[in-house]
Amino acid sequence: MSTGIPAAARVILASHNTKKLRELQRILTAAVPGLPEEAVISSAGIDLPDVVEVAVTFEDNALLKARSAAAATGLLAVADDSGLAVDVLGGAPGMFSARWSGRHGDDDANNDLLLAQLADVPAEHRTARFVCAAALVASDGSETVGRGEMTGVLLTERHGEGGFGYDPLFRPDGEQRSAAELSPEEKDAISHRGKAFRALAVHVARLLES
């Protein structure tokens, strides 16, 4: 990829989640040469229309959020919809991951509920995967969607202080540590969000340079 990105270039993340913003800043600036971290901004403090996530796929929900942010700001907008799909629960909590306990974004309550639901499930049936759909929408209406998955197993108790969401309960395949015990760079290299947003990197660079 070329590096002719204007100094004034901005990419808006259609999310107020500061942990997700830091993760996305790391992923995109590592994948898009010449893009500084401060060029990736969150929609926190920006008066955007509320987006009701009424779609039934991760991809369509991500597009709803990115379209709204692009239309309201005129900036190149990115958004993701992601979740944890537990095989023994038929793919749940899935798109309801962030509000599985009934309170949106309450990581502790969500983890407690999932642990309770899997209390009697043996190790061989605790397989799961994180899924992320990342959407990129430009002010001219052009759209691109990337998808990434990270497979693994669910632990019986929390391990680690890093990450967010269900990371303390999730051990990626090939790892002896939970996702919350990985360094940010280690997690980015294998995570669902890292894979999804790296798939968009060439498109981000092209649109910012044009």
Rank of each mutant, 00 (worst) to 15 (best):
E209M: 13
G146W: 08
G174Q: 08
V86N: 06
V52I: 14
P36G: 05
L115E: 06
I5E: 11
P168H: 04
L182Y: 03
L182N: 03
V131K: 09
D81Y: 03
S101H: 09
H125T: 02
I27R: 07
L155D: 13
G94S: 02
V54Q: 13
R126F: 14
Q117K: 15
A77K: 08
S178H: 01
G83R: 03
H104F: 13
A135W: 05
E157C: 10
H16N: 14
E23V: 07
A180T: 06
P93W: 03
G45I: 00
V11Q: 05
A55F: 04
L200N: 08
A66D: 07
R129L: 11
P6T: 08
A69M: 02
F170C: 05
G146P: 07
A116S: 14
P122F: 13
R126I: 09
P49N: 07
D167K: 08
S210N: 12
F130Q: 09
V121D: 10
S178R: 01
A201Q: 05
A98Q: 07
S101E: 02
D140K: 12
V153L: 05
D188P: 01
G102W: 00
L63F: 10
T3A: 15
A123F: 14
E59I: 03
R22F: 00
A72Q: 03
D47P: 00
A199K: 04
V32Q: 12
G74A: 08
M150I: 09
L113C: 01
G165T: 01
V137T: 10
Y166H: 04
E157W: 01
R158V: 09
A135M: 08
A8H: 15
T127C: 11
L208I: 10
R171W: 00
A134D: 08
A199F: 01
G174N: 03
V88L: 08
G146L: 10
R10M: 03
V54C: 11
V153H: 14
V88G: 06
V86F: 02
E143S: 07
P33V: 08
V40P: 05
F58G: 09
S97W: 05
V52Y: 00
H159I: 06
V32K: 12
P49T: 05
G74K: 07
L21N: 09
T18V: 12
D167W: 03
V56K: 11
D50C: 02
D173S: 13
D107K: 04
L75T: 01
H16T: 15
P33C: 13
G162R: 08
T151C: 12
V40Y: 03
S42V: 04
S2L: 02
L89D: 00
A135G: 09
D188G: 01
H159R: 15
A9C: 12
E143N: 10
E53V: 07
P49G: 06
L155V: 10
R10E: 14
T3L: 15
N17L: 08
L154I: 10
H16L: 01
E59W: 00
L13A: 02
D81C: 03
E186L: 01
S15N: 10
L89Y: 02
R26H: 14
I5H: 06
T57G: 04
L207H: 12
D173C: 06
G162D: 06
K65Q: 06
K65H: 04
T127A: 14
K19A: 14
A123D: 15
A180D: 10
L113V: 10
V78S: 00
E124L: 13
D50N: 11
A77S: 09
N111G: 09
A92M: 13
